[in-house]
Simulated assay, not measured.
Amino acid sequence: MILHFSKDNKLIINRWTNNPTAISDSEDILITCKGTVGKIAINSIGKVHIARQLMAIKVNDNLISNQFMELFLQRQIKTIEQKARGIIAGIKRQDILNIKTPLPPIEEQHRIVAKINEIFSFCDKAMELLHK
């Protein structure tokens, strides 16, 4: 399976390969690194081959929550996009590795993610009420 982002920012499988070269495992953070730079998602599909325009970020679960890292990277999108270079805009692995990342204890990362999800839930409910 080859995984990539659709136009509406969802992870999809669009073709198959018998010789995978770049592998992403379940729970990796995926970021587009060529063309449309900066789309981010967590691999919820499982072990798959990723297209050339994707980069997989593996985190140590004991130190970093992948959900915390995903939220942090989403907040850094403008910085990431500004690093894109070339005729077909692209970023390098080093561009991601060089981002200074605050790293609170893992328990605090989980609390931060839960609080942000709670706030987004309130926002979603407010938007639903506005559109009724």
Rank of each mutant, 00 (worst) to 15 (best):
M1Q: 13
I2D: 03
I2P: 04
L3Q: 04
L3I: 08
H4P: 03
H4I: 06
S6R: 06
S6Y: 05
S6M: 05
S6C: 07
S6L: 05
K7I: 08
D8C: 06
N9D: 14
N9R: 13
N9E: 13
N9Q: 11
L11T: 05
I12Y: 11
I13W: 05
N14L: 07
N14W: 04
W16A: 08
W16H: 10
W16G: 07
T17D: 08
T17K: 05
N18R: 14
N18A: 14
P20Y: 02
P20R: 03
T21R: 15
A22F: 04
A22V: 06
I23H: 01
S24W: 03
E27N: 15
I29A: 00
L30F: 10
I31W: 03
I31R: 02
I31L: 10
I31S: 02
G35L: 09
I40P: 00
N43I: 02
N43R: 01
S44N: 14
S44W: 04
G46F: 09
K47C: 09
K47G: 05
K47Q: 12
V48F: 01
I50M: 06
L54C: 04
L54M: 12
V59Q: 01
V59K: 03
N60Q: 12
N60C: 10
D61R: 14
D61N: 15
N62H: 10
I64R: 05
N66A: 05
F68M: 00
F68E: 00
F68W: 01
F68L: 00
M69Y: 08
M69P: 02
E70W: 03
E70V: 10
E70S: 13
L71I: 07
L71Y: 08
F72K: 01
F72R: 02
L73A: 04
L73T: 04
Q74P: 03
R75K: 14
I77N: 07
I77D: 04
I77H: 05
E81A: 14
E81S: 10
Q82I: 02
Q82K: 15
Q82W: 04
K83T: 04
A84I: 09
R85W: 08
R85Y: 13
R85V: 14
R85D: 10
G86I: 06
I87P: 02
I87G: 07
I88K: 09
I88T: 12
A89K: 15
A89P: 13
G90Q: 01
I91L: 03
I91N: 00
I91Q: 00
K92Q: 13
R93K: 15
R93F: 08
I96C: 03
I96N: 02
I96A: 06
L97E: 15
K100E: 15
K100A: 10
K100H: 13
T101Q: 11
T101Y: 09
T101E: 09
L103M: 15
P104M: 08
P105S: 11
P105I: 15
P105Y: 10
E107K: 15
Q109C: 04
R111L: 12
I112Y: 02
I112L: 03
I112N: 03
V113R: 00
I116C: 03
N117F: 02
E118I: 02
E118F: 06
E118D: 09
I119N: 11
F120L: 13
F120P: 02
F120C: 07
F120S: 08
S121T: 10
C123L: 13
C123T: 08
M127F: 09
M127Y: 10
M127C: 05
M127Q: 11
L129A: 08
L129W: 03
L130Q: 12
L130H: 07
H131W: 06
K132M: 07
K132H: 09
K132E: 13
K132I: 11
